[in-house]
Design a protein around this nucleic acid. Structure first.
Length: 544
RNA sequence: GCGCCCGUAGCUCAACUGGAUAGAGCAACUGCCUUCUAAGCAGUAGGUUUCAGGUUCAAGUCCUGACGGGCGUACCA
Protein backbone atom coordinates (compact mmCIF):
# COMPACT_ATOMS: atom_id res chain seq x y z
CA UNK A 1 0.00 0.00 0.00
CA UNK A 2 2.78 2.37 0.92
CA UNK A 3 4.50 1.83 -2.40
CA UNK A 4 1.22 2.18 -4.22
CA UNK A 5 0.62 5.58 -2.66
CA UNK A 6 4.17 6.75 -3.26
CA UNK A 7 3.86 5.87 -6.89
CA UNK A 8 0.51 7.60 -7.29
CA UNK A 9 1.79 10.75 -5.61
CA UNK A 10 4.92 10.78 -7.70
CA UNK A 11 2.88 10.51 -10.88
CA UNK A 12 0.61 13.33 -9.81
CA UNK A 13 3.54 15.58 -8.95
CA UNK A 14 5.16 14.95 -12.29
CA UNK A 15 1.90 15.76 -14.00
CA UNK A 16 1.78 19.02 -12.05
CA UNK A 17 5.09 19.92 -13.58
CA UNK A 18 7.20 19.63 -10.45
CA UNK A 19 10.71 18.82 -11.55
CA UNK A 20 12.38 15.69 -10.33
CA UNK A 21 15.03 17.35 -8.19
CA UNK A 22 12.39 19.32 -6.33
CA UNK A 23 10.47 16.25 -5.30
CA UNK A 24 11.47 15.17 -1.80
CA UNK A 25 11.40 11.64 -0.50
CA UNK A 26 7.72 10.81 -0.29
CA UNK A 27 7.00 9.79 3.27
CA UNK A 28 3.91 7.79 4.04
CA UNK A 29 3.09 7.46 7.69
CA UNK A 30 0.30 6.24 9.88
CA UNK A 31 -1.33 9.12 11.73
CA UNK A 32 -1.33 8.83 15.47
CA UNK A 33 -4.96 9.83 15.59
CA UNK A 34 -7.07 7.35 13.60
CA UNK A 35 -9.62 10.05 12.80
CA UNK A 36 -6.96 11.49 10.53
CA UNK A 37 -7.20 8.49 8.29
CA UNK A 38 -5.16 5.36 7.67
CA UNK A 39 -2.18 6.87 5.93
CA UNK A 40 -0.88 10.36 5.50
CA UNK A 41 1.82 12.21 3.68
CA UNK A 42 3.52 15.51 4.30
CA UNK A 43 4.83 16.12 0.76
CA UNK A 44 2.83 19.29 0.36
CA UNK A 45 4.60 20.83 3.34
CA UNK A 46 7.96 19.59 2.16
CA UNK A 47 7.30 21.28 -1.18
CA UNK A 48 6.19 24.58 0.29
CA UNK A 49 9.66 26.02 0.26
CA UNK A 50 11.00 24.89 -3.13
CA UNK A 51 7.74 25.82 -4.87
CA UNK A 52 7.37 28.99 -2.84
CA UNK A 53 3.74 28.33 -2.36
CA UNK A 54 1.26 27.78 0.45
CA UNK A 55 1.32 24.11 1.50
CA UNK A 56 -2.46 23.85 1.52
CA UNK A 57 -2.62 25.18 -2.03
CA UNK A 58 -0.09 22.60 -3.14
CA UNK A 59 -2.06 19.91 -1.37
CA UNK A 60 -5.25 20.93 -3.12
CA UNK A 61 -3.67 20.80 -6.53
CA UNK A 62 -2.04 17.49 -5.73
CA UNK A 63 -5.28 15.94 -4.55
CA UNK A 64 -7.17 17.05 -7.62
CA UNK A 65 -4.61 15.55 -9.98
CA UNK A 66 -4.04 12.43 -7.88
CA UNK A 67 -5.53 9.23 -9.22
CA UNK A 68 -6.25 6.35 -6.88
CA UNK A 69 -8.10 3.11 -7.25
CA UNK A 70 -11.42 3.22 -5.36
CA UNK A 71 -11.11 -0.45 -4.42
CA UNK A 72 -8.11 0.55 -2.29
CA UNK A 73 -8.53 4.19 -1.36
CA UNK A 74 -11.93 5.43 -0.38
CA UNK A 75 -11.16 9.04 0.42
CA UNK A 76 -8.40 11.60 0.23
CA UNK A 77 -8.56 14.63 2.47
CA UNK A 78 -6.49 17.67 3.28
CA UNK A 79 -6.08 18.57 6.92
CA UNK A 80 -4.15 20.76 9.28
CA UNK A 81 -1.23 22.72 7.83
CA UNK A 82 -1.23 20.62 4.66
CA UNK A 83 -1.30 16.94 5.48
CA UNK A 84 -2.92 14.72 2.91
CA UNK A 85 -4.83 11.88 4.53
CA UNK A 86 -5.90 8.67 2.87
CA UNK A 87 -8.68 6.43 4.02
CA UNK A 88 -8.59 2.79 2.98
CA UNK A 89 -11.67 1.31 1.42
CA UNK A 90 -13.32 -1.59 3.20
CA UNK A 91 -12.90 -3.94 0.26
CA UNK A 92 -9.17 -3.47 0.50
CA UNK A 93 -9.31 -4.42 4.18
CA UNK A 94 -11.36 -7.56 3.53
CA UNK A 95 -8.98 -8.71 0.81
CA UNK A 96 -5.99 -8.22 3.06
CA UNK A 97 -7.68 -10.01 5.92
CA UNK A 98 -8.39 -12.95 3.64
CA UNK A 99 -4.70 -13.06 2.75
CA UNK A 100 -3.73 -12.91 6.40
CA UNK A 101 -5.85 -15.97 7.17
CA UNK A 102 -4.34 -17.79 4.23
CA UNK A 103 -0.79 -17.00 5.25
CA UNK A 104 -1.40 -18.21 8.81
CA UNK A 105 1.80 -18.90 10.69
CA UNK A 106 3.80 -17.12 8.00
CA UNK A 107 1.89 -13.88 8.28
CA UNK A 108 4.32 -11.16 9.30
CA UNK A 109 7.28 -12.73 7.55
CA UNK A 110 8.94 -10.74 4.84
CA UNK A 111 11.86 -11.14 2.51
CA UNK A 112 13.45 -7.73 2.78
CA UNK A 113 16.62 -9.18 4.27
CA UNK A 114 16.93 -12.00 1.80
CA UNK A 115 20.58 -12.49 0.95
CA UNK A 116 21.75 -11.34 4.34
CA UNK A 117 23.88 -13.89 6.12
CA UNK A 118 23.90 -12.69 9.68
CA UNK A 119 26.01 -13.78 12.59
CA UNK A 120 24.55 -12.66 15.86
CA UNK A 121 27.03 -12.92 18.69
CA UNK A 122 25.58 -12.72 22.14
CA UNK A 123 25.76 -13.87 25.76
CA UNK A 124 29.50 -14.57 25.37
CA UNK A 125 29.99 -14.83 29.12
CA UNK A 126 33.14 -16.62 30.15
CA UNK A 127 32.39 -19.85 31.99
CA UNK A 128 33.25 -18.62 35.47
CA UNK A 129 29.81 -19.03 36.96
CA UNK A 130 26.11 -19.39 36.28
CA UNK A 131 24.34 -16.84 34.09
CA UNK A 132 22.93 -14.04 36.16
CA UNK A 133 20.22 -11.48 35.75
CA UNK A 134 22.87 -9.23 34.24
CA UNK A 135 23.45 -11.69 31.39
CA UNK A 136 19.73 -12.17 30.92
CA UNK A 137 19.14 -8.97 29.06
CA UNK A 138 21.96 -9.75 26.67
CA UNK A 139 20.76 -13.29 26.03
CA UNK A 140 17.14 -12.45 25.46
CA UNK A 141 17.82 -9.36 23.36
CA UNK A 142 20.31 -11.21 21.18
CA UNK A 143 18.03 -14.15 20.59
CA UNK A 144 14.98 -12.02 19.87
CA UNK A 145 16.79 -9.76 17.44
CA UNK A 146 18.02 -12.92 15.75
CA UNK A 147 14.41 -14.04 15.44
CA UNK A 148 13.40 -10.67 14.03
CA UNK A 149 16.11 -10.90 11.41
CA UNK A 150 14.94 -14.40 10.52
CA UNK A 151 11.37 -13.23 10.16
CA UNK A 152 12.43 -10.52 7.78
CA UNK A 153 14.32 -12.87 5.52
CA UNK A 154 17.86 -13.10 6.83
CA UNK A 155 19.80 -16.29 7.30
CA UNK A 156 20.90 -16.16 10.93
CA UNK A 157 23.62 -17.92 12.87
CA UNK A 158 23.81 -17.59 16.66
CA UNK A 159 27.26 -17.68 18.19
CA UNK A 160 28.61 -17.62 21.72
CA UNK A 161 32.18 -16.37 22.01
CA UNK A 162 34.26 -17.29 25.02
CA UNK A 163 37.74 -17.36 26.38
CA UNK A 164 38.89 -20.12 28.70
CA UNK A 165 42.52 -19.14 28.91
CA UNK A 166 42.69 -15.90 30.82
CA UNK A 167 43.39 -14.89 34.35
CA UNK A 168 39.74 -15.23 35.35
CA UNK A 169 39.76 -18.88 34.45
CA UNK A 170 43.01 -19.54 36.29
CA UNK A 171 41.54 -18.08 39.42
CA UNK A 172 38.46 -20.19 38.88
CA UNK A 173 40.57 -23.37 38.77
CA UNK A 174 42.44 -22.32 41.90
CA UNK A 175 39.17 -21.65 43.66
CA UNK A 176 37.90 -25.13 42.86
CA UNK A 177 41.13 -26.66 44.08
CA UNK A 178 40.87 -24.77 47.35
CA UNK A 179 37.35 -26.07 47.91
CA UNK A 180 38.43 -29.56 46.93
CA UNK A 181 41.15 -29.54 49.54
CA UNK A 182 38.80 -28.11 52.16
CA UNK A 183 36.23 -30.83 51.47
CA UNK A 184 38.93 -33.39 52.10
CA UNK A 185 39.71 -31.76 55.42
CA UNK A 186 42.91 -30.13 54.31
CA UNK A 187 44.01 -26.64 55.09
CA UNK A 188 43.38 -24.41 52.10
CA UNK A 189 42.25 -20.92 51.36
CA UNK A 190 40.63 -19.32 48.39
CA UNK A 191 43.14 -17.41 46.28
CA UNK A 192 43.20 -13.66 46.25
CA UNK A 193 40.08 -12.56 44.39
CA UNK A 194 38.79 -16.14 44.27
CA UNK A 195 35.24 -17.18 43.47
CA UNK A 196 33.14 -17.53 46.58
CA UNK A 197 29.96 -18.99 45.14
CA UNK A 198 28.45 -22.19 46.45
CA UNK A 199 28.59 -23.70 42.97
CA UNK A 200 32.38 -23.91 43.30
CA UNK A 201 31.96 -26.22 46.25
CA UNK A 202 29.49 -28.33 44.26
CA UNK A 203 32.02 -28.77 41.50
CA UNK A 204 34.67 -29.76 44.06
CA UNK A 205 32.32 -32.33 45.59
CA UNK A 206 31.63 -33.80 42.21
CA UNK A 207 35.36 -34.16 41.67
CA UNK A 208 35.62 -36.07 44.93
CA UNK A 209 32.81 -38.37 43.81
CA UNK A 210 34.63 -39.07 40.58
CA UNK A 211 38.25 -39.09 41.62
CA UNK A 212 38.30 -39.44 45.40
CA UNK A 213 41.43 -37.87 46.80
CA UNK A 214 43.60 -38.79 43.82
CA UNK A 215 43.87 -35.16 42.79
CA UNK A 216 45.50 -34.10 46.05
CA UNK A 217 48.87 -33.87 44.42
CA UNK A 218 47.81 -32.41 41.11
CA UNK A 219 50.59 -30.17 39.88
CA UNK A 220 48.51 -27.16 38.88
CA UNK A 221 44.91 -26.05 38.69
CA UNK A 222 44.42 -27.42 35.16
CA UNK A 223 42.25 -30.40 35.99
CA UNK A 224 40.19 -28.25 38.35
CA UNK A 225 39.80 -25.55 35.77
CA UNK A 226 38.75 -27.96 33.09
CA UNK A 227 36.16 -29.71 35.14
CA UNK A 228 34.83 -26.38 36.35
CA UNK A 229 34.55 -25.15 32.80
CA UNK A 230 32.75 -28.25 31.66
CA UNK A 231 30.34 -28.19 34.57
CA UNK A 232 29.59 -24.48 34.26
CA UNK A 233 29.11 -24.64 30.52
CA UNK A 234 26.70 -27.48 31.00
CA UNK A 235 24.70 -25.27 33.36
CA UNK A 236 24.83 -22.30 31.01
CA UNK A 237 23.61 -24.42 28.15
CA UNK A 238 20.72 -25.67 30.24
CA UNK A 239 19.81 -22.19 31.34
CA UNK A 240 19.80 -20.95 27.76
CA UNK A 241 17.76 -23.94 26.65
CA UNK A 242 15.26 -23.15 29.33
CA UNK A 243 15.02 -19.62 28.02
CA UNK A 244 14.31 -20.93 24.56
CA UNK A 245 17.75 -20.05 23.25
CA UNK A 246 19.83 -22.39 21.17
CA UNK A 247 23.28 -21.41 20.03
CA UNK A 248 24.50 -22.67 16.68
CA UNK A 249 28.09 -22.56 17.80
CA UNK A 250 30.43 -21.77 20.65
CA UNK A 251 33.59 -20.06 19.50
CA UNK A 252 36.68 -20.43 21.62
CA UNK A 253 39.03 -17.48 21.51
CA UNK A 254 41.86 -20.00 21.63
CA UNK A 255 41.11 -20.94 18.03
CA UNK A 256 42.40 -17.57 16.94
CA UNK A 257 45.82 -18.32 18.41
CA UNK A 258 45.94 -21.79 16.93
CA UNK A 259 45.05 -20.82 13.40
CA UNK A 260 47.42 -17.87 13.29
CA UNK A 261 44.77 -15.15 13.12
CA UNK A 262 46.29 -13.26 16.01
CA UNK A 263 49.76 -13.27 14.49
CA UNK A 264 48.31 -12.26 11.17
CA UNK A 265 46.63 -9.20 12.66
CA UNK A 266 49.92 -8.07 14.17
CA UNK A 267 51.77 -8.76 10.94
CA UNK A 268 49.38 -6.75 8.78
CA UNK A 269 49.21 -3.94 11.33
CA UNK A 270 52.99 -3.70 11.33
CA UNK A 271 53.17 -3.79 7.54
CA UNK A 272 50.69 -0.95 7.34
CA UNK A 273 52.47 1.01 10.02
CA UNK A 274 49.48 0.83 12.33
CA UNK A 275 51.32 -1.02 15.08
CA UNK A 276 54.62 -0.36 16.80
CA UNK A 277 56.69 -1.55 19.76
CA UNK A 278 57.34 0.57 22.80
CA UNK A 279 58.21 -0.19 26.43
CA UNK A 280 58.13 -3.86 25.59
CA UNK A 281 54.53 -3.72 24.49
CA UNK A 282 52.87 -3.64 21.06
CA UNK A 283 50.66 -0.64 20.42
CA UNK A 284 47.82 0.03 18.00
CA UNK A 285 47.93 3.55 16.57
CA UNK A 286 44.39 4.43 17.54
CA UNK A 287 45.38 8.10 17.58
CA UNK A 288 45.22 7.83 13.78
CA UNK A 289 41.48 7.41 14.22
CA UNK A 290 41.05 10.33 16.52
CA UNK A 291 41.52 8.73 19.90
CA UNK A 292 43.46 10.45 22.66
CA UNK A 293 45.83 7.60 23.19
CA UNK A 294 47.21 4.63 21.37
CA UNK A 295 46.03 1.27 22.59
CA UNK A 296 48.02 -1.66 23.86
CA UNK A 297 47.56 -4.84 21.86
CA UNK A 298 50.21 -6.99 23.52
CA UNK A 299 51.35 -6.33 27.05
CA UNK A 300 55.01 -6.31 27.97
CA UNK A 301 54.38 -9.66 29.61
CA UNK A 302 53.75 -11.02 26.13
CA UNK A 303 50.06 -11.55 26.84
CA UNK A 304 47.64 -9.90 24.42
CA UNK A 305 44.96 -7.59 25.75
CA UNK A 306 41.44 -8.57 24.82
CA UNK A 307 41.31 -6.06 21.98
CA UNK A 308 43.66 -8.05 19.81
CA UNK A 309 41.60 -11.25 19.74
CA UNK A 310 38.47 -9.13 19.41
CA UNK A 311 39.79 -7.70 16.17
CA UNK A 312 40.93 -11.09 14.95
CA UNK A 313 37.57 -12.58 15.85
CA UNK A 314 35.61 -10.04 13.84
CA UNK A 315 37.89 -10.52 10.88
CA UNK A 316 37.26 -14.22 11.26
CA UNK A 317 33.50 -13.73 11.12
CA UNK A 318 33.74 -11.75 7.90
CA UNK A 319 36.18 -14.31 6.57
CA UNK A 320 33.48 -16.93 7.10
CA UNK A 321 31.25 -15.06 4.67
CA UNK A 322 28.81 -13.25 6.91
CA UNK A 323 27.66 -9.94 5.57
CA UNK A 324 26.10 -8.80 8.82
CA UNK A 325 27.88 -9.24 12.13
CA UNK A 326 25.74 -8.12 14.99
CA UNK A 327 27.32 -7.87 18.43
CA UNK A 328 25.21 -7.57 21.52
CA UNK A 329 26.87 -6.06 24.55
CA UNK A 330 26.42 -3.87 27.56
CA UNK A 331 27.19 -0.18 27.68
CA UNK A 332 30.39 -0.80 29.62
CA UNK A 333 32.01 -2.30 26.54
CA UNK A 334 31.10 0.49 24.20
CA UNK A 335 34.62 1.89 24.06
CA UNK A 336 36.12 -1.20 22.50
CA UNK A 337 33.78 -1.03 19.55
CA UNK A 338 35.57 1.71 17.57
CA UNK A 339 38.89 -0.09 18.04
CA UNK A 340 37.44 -3.24 16.57
CA UNK A 341 35.94 -1.38 13.61
CA UNK A 342 39.17 0.45 12.93
CA UNK A 343 41.08 -2.77 13.36
CA UNK A 344 39.16 -4.69 10.76
CA UNK A 345 39.25 -1.84 8.29
CA UNK A 346 43.04 -1.81 8.62
CA UNK A 347 42.84 -5.48 7.71
CA UNK A 348 40.89 -4.54 4.62
CA UNK A 349 37.38 -5.52 5.65
CA UNK A 350 34.29 -3.41 5.31
CA UNK A 351 33.41 -2.14 8.75
CA UNK A 352 29.89 -1.31 7.61
CA UNK A 353 29.14 -5.01 7.90
CA UNK A 354 29.62 -4.92 11.64
CA UNK A 355 26.76 -3.63 13.68
CA UNK A 356 26.29 -3.41 17.37
CA UNK A 357 23.37 -3.55 19.74
CA UNK A 358 24.29 -1.81 22.96
CA UNK A 359 22.00 -2.12 25.92
CA UNK A 360 22.09 -0.17 29.14
CA UNK A 361 22.62 -1.85 32.44
CA UNK A 362 20.12 -3.77 34.43
CA UNK A 363 19.82 -2.21 37.84
CA UNK A 364 18.93 -4.92 40.23
CA UNK A 365 16.71 -3.76 43.03
CA UNK A 366 16.58 -6.07 45.98
CA UNK A 367 14.82 -5.35 49.27
CA UNK A 368 13.89 -1.95 47.91
CA UNK A 369 17.42 -0.79 47.18
CA UNK A 370 19.81 -1.24 44.28
CA UNK A 371 22.83 -3.43 44.74
CA UNK A 372 25.94 -4.25 42.78
CA UNK A 373 26.29 -7.74 41.49
CA UNK A 374 29.52 -9.60 41.30
CA UNK A 375 29.97 -13.15 40.08
CA UNK A 376 33.19 -13.43 41.97
CA UNK A 377 31.65 -12.41 45.30
CA UNK A 378 28.68 -14.69 44.74
CA UNK A 379 26.55 -11.65 45.11
CA UNK A 380 24.04 -12.31 42.36
CA UNK A 381 20.69 -13.66 41.36
CA UNK A 382 20.96 -16.35 38.73
CA UNK A 383 18.70 -16.54 35.74
CA UNK A 384 17.58 -19.96 36.88
CA UNK A 385 16.53 -18.60 40.25
CA UNK A 386 14.66 -15.85 38.50
CA UNK A 387 12.86 -18.29 36.21
CA UNK A 388 12.00 -20.46 39.19
CA UNK A 389 10.31 -17.46 40.75
CA UNK A 390 8.47 -15.89 37.87
CA UNK A 391 8.60 -18.36 35.01
CA UNK A 392 10.35 -18.44 31.66
CA UNK A 393 7.84 -16.35 29.74
CA UNK A 394 7.82 -13.54 32.27
CA UNK A 395 11.61 -13.53 32.34
CA UNK A 396 11.93 -13.15 28.58
CA UNK A 397 9.16 -10.60 28.42
CA UNK A 398 10.64 -8.52 31.20
CA UNK A 399 13.98 -8.14 29.48
CA UNK A 400 12.33 -7.20 26.20
CA UNK A 401 9.70 -4.73 27.25
CA UNK A 402 12.00 -1.75 27.55
CA UNK A 403 14.09 -0.04 24.93
CA UNK A 404 17.64 -1.47 25.02
CA UNK A 405 18.83 2.09 25.20
CA UNK A 406 17.37 2.74 28.61
CA UNK A 407 18.25 1.42 32.01
CA UNK A 408 16.18 -1.50 33.09
CA UNK A 409 15.13 -1.46 36.67
CA UNK A 410 14.71 -4.97 37.88
CA UNK A 411 12.95 -5.16 41.19
CA UNK A 412 13.33 -8.71 42.40
CA UNK A 413 10.57 -8.40 44.94
CA UNK A 414 8.23 -7.05 42.33
CA UNK A 415 9.21 -9.80 39.91
CA UNK A 416 8.46 -12.36 42.59
CA UNK A 417 4.99 -11.13 43.23
CA UNK A 418 4.50 -10.52 39.53
CA UNK A 419 2.37 -13.64 39.12
CA UNK A 420 -1.13 -12.54 38.28
CA UNK A 421 -0.89 -8.96 37.18
CA UNK A 422 2.14 -9.32 35.02
CA UNK A 423 1.94 -7.62 31.63
CA UNK A 424 2.82 -10.74 29.70
CA UNK A 425 -0.39 -12.37 30.87
CA UNK A 426 -2.41 -9.71 29.17
CA UNK A 427 -1.22 -10.97 25.81
CA UNK A 428 -1.47 -14.64 26.68
CA UNK A 429 -4.89 -14.13 28.17
CA UNK A 430 -6.21 -12.52 25.01
CA UNK A 431 -4.93 -15.47 23.01
CA UNK A 432 -6.37 -18.07 25.38
CA UNK A 433 -9.67 -16.29 25.44
CA UNK A 434 -9.96 -16.36 21.67
CA UNK A 435 -9.10 -20.05 21.56
CA UNK A 436 -11.79 -20.72 24.09
CA UNK A 437 -14.36 -18.89 21.99
CA UNK A 438 -13.30 -20.68 18.85
CA UNK A 439 -13.65 -24.03 20.58
CA UNK A 440 -17.21 -23.12 21.49
CA UNK A 441 -18.00 -21.90 18.00
CA UNK A 442 -16.82 -25.18 16.55
CA UNK A 443 -19.02 -27.10 18.95
CA UNK A 444 -22.15 -25.32 17.84
CA UNK A 445 -21.48 -24.88 14.16
CA UNK A 446 -20.28 -27.18 11.43
CA UNK A 447 -19.25 -24.34 9.22
CA UNK A 448 -15.62 -23.57 8.95
CA UNK A 449 -13.23 -21.58 6.86
CA UNK A 450 -15.02 -19.52 4.25
CA UNK A 451 -17.04 -16.60 5.39
CA UNK A 452 -18.32 -13.32 4.10
CA UNK A 453 -15.91 -10.89 5.70
CA UNK A 454 -17.76 -7.88 4.31
CA UNK A 455 -20.28 -8.37 7.11
CA UNK A 456 -17.64 -6.89 9.41
CA UNK A 457 -18.72 -3.28 9.41
CA UNK A 458 -18.78 -2.28 13.09
CA UNK A 459 -16.21 0.38 14.06
CA UNK A 460 -14.55 -2.03 16.45
CA UNK A 461 -14.27 -4.63 13.70
CA UNK A 462 -12.77 -2.24 11.19
CA UNK A 463 -10.31 -0.90 13.77
CA UNK A 464 -9.25 -4.43 14.66
CA UNK A 465 -8.72 -5.40 11.03
CA UNK A 466 -6.51 -2.40 10.46
CA UNK A 467 -4.49 -3.20 13.55
CA UNK A 468 -3.99 -6.78 12.41
CA UNK A 469 -2.80 -5.67 9.00
CA UNK A 470 -0.08 -3.49 10.47
CA UNK A 471 1.66 -6.46 12.09
CA UNK A 472 4.25 -6.87 9.32
CA UNK A 473 5.17 -3.21 9.69
CA UNK A 474 5.65 -3.66 13.42
CA UNK A 475 7.95 -6.63 12.81
CA UNK A 476 9.94 -4.75 10.22
CA UNK A 477 10.26 -1.67 12.39
CA UNK A 478 11.38 -3.77 15.31
CA UNK A 479 13.95 -5.55 13.16
CA UNK A 480 15.49 -2.45 11.57
CA UNK A 481 15.93 -0.75 14.91
CA UNK A 482 16.90 -3.97 16.69
CA UNK A 483 14.33 -3.05 19.29
CA UNK A 484 11.98 -5.85 20.34
CA UNK A 485 10.05 -3.57 22.67
CA UNK A 486 8.40 -2.01 19.63
CA UNK A 487 6.81 -5.34 18.86
CA UNK A 488 5.63 -5.64 22.44
CA UNK A 489 4.03 -2.22 22.22
CA UNK A 490 2.26 -3.33 19.06
CA UNK A 491 1.03 -6.58 20.60
CA UNK A 492 -0.30 -4.73 23.63
CA UNK A 493 -2.23 -2.41 21.35
CA UNK A 494 -3.53 -5.35 19.39
CA UNK A 495 -4.71 -7.19 22.50
CA UNK A 496 -6.36 -4.04 23.72
CA UNK A 497 -8.05 -3.44 20.37
CA UNK A 498 -9.30 -7.01 20.43
CA UNK A 499 -10.79 -6.78 23.89
CA UNK A 500 -12.68 -3.68 22.83
CA UNK A 501 -14.08 -5.60 19.89
CA UNK A 502 -14.86 -8.50 22.22
CA UNK A 503 -16.92 -6.25 24.44
CA UNK A 504 -18.68 -4.47 21.59
CA UNK A 505 -19.42 -7.39 19.32
CA UNK A 506 -20.71 -10.76 20.39
CA UNK A 507 -19.43 -13.63 18.36
CA UNK A 508 -21.79 -16.38 19.44
CA UNK A 509 -25.51 -16.00 19.36
CA UNK A 510 -25.64 -13.66 16.38
CA UNK A 511 -26.81 -14.49 12.90
CA UNK A 512 -24.77 -17.39 11.57
CA UNK A 513 -23.01 -15.69 8.67
CA UNK A 514 -21.93 -12.86 10.95
CA UNK A 515 -20.86 -15.32 13.63
CA UNK A 516 -18.63 -17.03 11.12
CA UNK A 517 -17.12 -13.77 9.92
CA UNK A 518 -16.41 -12.68 13.48
CA UNK A 519 -14.99 -16.06 14.36
CA UNK A 520 -12.58 -15.64 11.47
CA UNK A 521 -11.64 -12.18 12.66
CA UNK A 522 -10.97 -13.57 16.13
CA UNK A 523 -8.95 -16.40 14.62
CA UNK A 524 -6.89 -13.88 12.70
CA UNK A 525 -6.21 -12.04 15.94
CA UNK A 526 -5.12 -15.21 17.69
CA UNK A 527 -2.87 -15.94 14.74
CA UNK A 528 -1.13 -12.58 14.94
CA UNK A 529 -0.77 -12.76 18.71
CA UNK A 530 0.74 -16.19 18.39
CA UNK A 531 3.13 -15.17 15.64
CA UNK A 532 4.20 -12.13 17.62
CA UNK A 533 4.75 -14.11 20.79
CA UNK A 534 6.72 -16.65 18.82
CA UNK A 535 9.11 -13.93 17.72
CA UNK A 536 9.50 -12.94 21.35
CA UNK A 537 10.10 -16.56 22.29
CA UNK A 538 7.09 -16.61 24.58
CA UNK A 539 4.37 -19.26 24.62
CA UNK A 540 0.81 -18.61 23.50
CA UNK A 541 -1.28 -20.98 25.63
CA UNK A 542 -4.71 -22.13 24.43
CA UNK A 543 -6.05 -22.10 27.95
CA UNK A 544 -5.27 -20.24 31.12
C1' G B 1 38.88 16.82 32.78
C1' C B 2 37.34 14.02 28.19
C1' G B 3 33.91 10.43 25.56
C1' C B 4 29.15 7.66 25.17
C1' C B 5 24.01 7.02 27.05
C1' C B 6 19.90 8.99 29.70
C1' G B 7 16.44 12.99 31.94
C1' U B 8 8.73 12.65 29.62
C1' A B 9 2.23 11.78 34.68
C1' G B 10 3.40 9.98 41.91
C1' C B 11 6.34 5.12 39.95
C1' U B 12 8.12 2.09 35.53
C1' C B 13 8.29 3.34 30.56
C1' A B 14 6.20 4.60 24.97
C1' A B 15 6.01 8.13 21.21
C1' C B 16 6.66 4.87 13.88
C1' U B 17 13.81 8.80 13.98
C1' G B 18 11.18 16.26 12.56
C1' G B 19 4.67 15.97 12.12
C1' A B 20 -1.52 17.07 13.71
C1' U B 21 -4.53 17.35 20.67
C1' A B 22 2.73 13.82 24.15
C1' G B 23 0.43 8.07 25.17
C1' A B 24 0.29 3.01 27.97
C1' G B 25 0.88 0.00 32.48
C1' C B 26 1.12 0.12 37.71
C1' A B 27 -0.77 3.23 41.99
C1' A B 28 -5.59 6.53 43.10
C1' C B 29 -10.87 7.48 42.24
C1' U B 30 -16.05 6.16 39.69
C1' G B 31 -18.97 2.64 37.25
C1' C B 32 -19.59 -2.55 34.86
C1' C B 33 -20.02 -10.06 35.97
C1' U B 34 -28.00 -14.53 35.42
C1' U B 35 -25.04 -14.52 28.15
C1' C B 36 -18.42 -16.18 24.32
C1' U B 37 -12.47 -16.44 30.19
C1' A B 38 -13.72 -9.72 35.03
C1' A B 39 -5.99 -12.18 34.39
C1' G B 40 -11.15 -7.96 31.52
C1' C B 41 -13.91 -3.27 29.89
C1' A B 42 -15.60 2.01 30.12
C1' G B 43 -14.49 6.56 32.49
C1' U B 44 -12.03 10.51 35.98
C1' A B 45 -7.63 12.64 37.73
C1' G B 46 -2.53 13.30 36.93
C1' G B 47 2.41 17.29 32.16
C1' U B 48 5.86 24.26 31.31
C1' U B 49 8.64 16.63 28.08
C1' U B 50 15.00 19.05 33.89
C1' C B 51 16.34 24.38 32.61
C1' A B 52 17.95 28.47 28.96
C1' G B 53 18.72 29.75 24.11
C1' G B 54 18.93 28.38 18.68
C1' U B 55 17.62 25.98 13.72
C1' U B 56 12.10 25.91 10.44
C1' C B 57 6.08 25.65 7.90
C1' A B 58 6.57 22.23 12.28
C1' A B 59 10.98 20.28 18.10
C1' G B 60 9.98 15.45 23.49
C1' U B 61 12.91 14.33 18.98
C1' C B 62 18.23 18.22 15.66
C1' C B 63 22.33 22.17 17.47
C1' U B 64 24.76 25.04 21.68
C1' G B 65 25.16 25.77 26.87
C1' A B 66 23.82 24.70 32.04
C1' C B 67 22.03 21.25 35.84
C1' G B 68 21.17 16.09 37.45
C1' G B 69 22.06 10.58 36.92
C1' G B 70 24.55 6.03 34.66
C1' C B 71 28.82 3.90 32.15
C1' G B 72 33.55 4.24 30.30
C1' U B 73 38.20 6.80 30.23
C1' A B 74 44.12 0.40 32.39
C1' C B 75 50.19 -3.03 29.78
C1' C B 76 41.72 -5.66 33.73
C1' A B 77 37.88 -8.72 30.80
Amino acid sequence: MEQYLQKAILEALTKMGVSGDQIPEIQIETPRDPSHGDAATNVAMMLAKPLRNNPRKIAEELVSTLKTDSSRIEAVEIAGPGFINFRYSDSYLYNELTDLLKEGEDFGKSSGRKGIKALVEFVSANPTGPLTVGHGRNAVLGDTVARLLEWTGADVHREYYFNNAGRQMRVLGQSVRARYLQELGKDAELPEGGYEGEYIRDIAKKLIDEHGDSLLNAEDEKVFKESAEAAIFEEIRKTLERMNIRMDSFFNEHTLYENGSIDNVLKVFREKGMAYDEDGAVWFKTTEFGKDKDTVLVKSSGEPTYRLPDIAYHANKLERGYNLCLDVFGADHIDTYPDVLNGISVLGYDKELVDVLVYQFVTLVKDGKPFKMSTRKANFVTLDELMDEVGEDVTRFFFLMRSPNTHLEFDVAQAREAGEKNPVFYLQYAHARIQSILRKVHETSDRSGESNLSLLTHDSEITLIKKLLSFPDAVELSATHREPHRLITYLNELASTFTSFYHDCRIMGVEEDLQQARANLAAATARVLKNGLRILGITAPDQM
